[in-house]
């Protein structure tokens, strides 16, 4: 029997550190090659959906989506479709149209004067047409930062699942998904002391994502900064709560963390069950609460 080998790689992608762990019987050079191709999948997602890149599908839409329907890549269409579905289910608590406020606070770049920073738009203003075309009912700025990372992880795992590996983990800065026979343990940063402490848990579903405000505040040096905003009030999320969601796919886990952070519990509880997901809340007092219990 050939011995099992494990490799681990890390590349700066999606604005964070993406780590890929592969475990299989193939020679190490082969595993390295396969990891390289998985990174390539993530790079494609980045090229299509980055707000920062002026050539991405998203930037094209943000420039002229209100003028005429634009055709986008099937992956972009799929992500926006799911985002709209989650907005509907969470009564707008998850909303990809909060970008203008993030641009104003300096957390997202502004692409020239032609982009509108009007804040009137909401997720209902996004229209999905047949033939992968999308249009806006009024000038909008959408940002897939709260969902595309999870999608990129799913795409990498989808590719890796075709290779007959023993197991794999793709971790995009905390949004992760495991494949096959790999360790089912996971560590979640403790929101009270994110740089030093972690809370042990087990992978209750193949995918896991965590959202909290602790790093943005530290990085920007602003007490009030947070990359997660309440869509109705525009106020940054400032609690010390950390929300982790276990789901079947990473795109669901990623998006649902924001819904749990922002929506009232009676709204997100049925959404969690509809997506067969489990939420783990870590509070500032050190409590751990699991939903559904």
């Amino acid at each position: 029997m050939t011995p099992m080998k494990t490799i681990q790689r890390c590349q700066p992608l999606l604005g964070t550190f993406v780590e890929i762990t592969l475990c299989g019987e193939a020679p190490e050079t082969k595993l390295q090659q396969q990891a390289g191709k998985a990174f390539e999948m993530i790079r494609w997602v980045q090229r299509m959906m980055s707000f920062h890149d002026a050539d991405s599908d998203i930037s094209r839409l943000n420039r002229c989506g209100h003028l005429a329907p634009l055709q986008v890549h099937p992956w972009t269409y799929h992500v926006i479709e799911l985002a709209a579905q989650l907005s509907r289910e969470t009564e707008g608590a998850f909303d990809i149209t909060v970008a203008p406020r993030l641009v104003r606070s300096g957390l997202l770049p502004r692409h020239g004067a032609y982009t509108s920073l009007a804040e009137a738009g909401r997720w209902e203003d996004i229209t999905l047409h047949g033939g992968r075309a999308i249009s806006y009912r009024q000038p909008l700025q959408i940002d897939l930062g709260g969902i595309a990372k999870g999608f990129a992880v799913d795409k990498a795992i989808e590719y890796l699942s075709t290779l007959g590996l023993h197991g794999a983990i793709v971790n995009a800065g905390g949004d992760l998904r495991v494949l096959g026979q790999i360790d089912s343990r996971v560590a979640i940063r403790d929101p009270r002391d994110p740089h030093r402490a972690a809370v042990p848990s087990i992978m209750l579903r193949p995918a896991l994502a965590t959202s909290a405000a602790y790093f943005v505040r530290a990085a920007s040096g602003l007490k009030k900064a947070a990359a997660i905003l309440h869509p109705r009030t525009g106020k940054p999320m400032r609690s010390n709560l950390s929300v982790s969601v276990f789901a079947k796919t990473c795109i669901e886990a990623d998006a649902l963390t924001k819904a749990v952070l922002l929506a009232p519990q009676k709204v997100w509880n049925p959404v969690l069950s509809a997506h067969d997901s489990v939420a783990l809340l870590l509070t500032a007092k050190g409590e751990q609460v699991l939903f559904p219990a």
Binding site: K5, T16, T21, C23, G173, G174, D175, A213
Partner: peptide
């Protein structure tokens, strides 16, 4: 799992790679 070393993936709020 785990031939060789223990791997515990870590989840948390995203760290920027700026």
């Amino acid at each position: 799992l785990k031939p060789g070393k223990d791997i515990t993936p870590l989840s948390g709020a995203t760290i920027s790679s700026q």
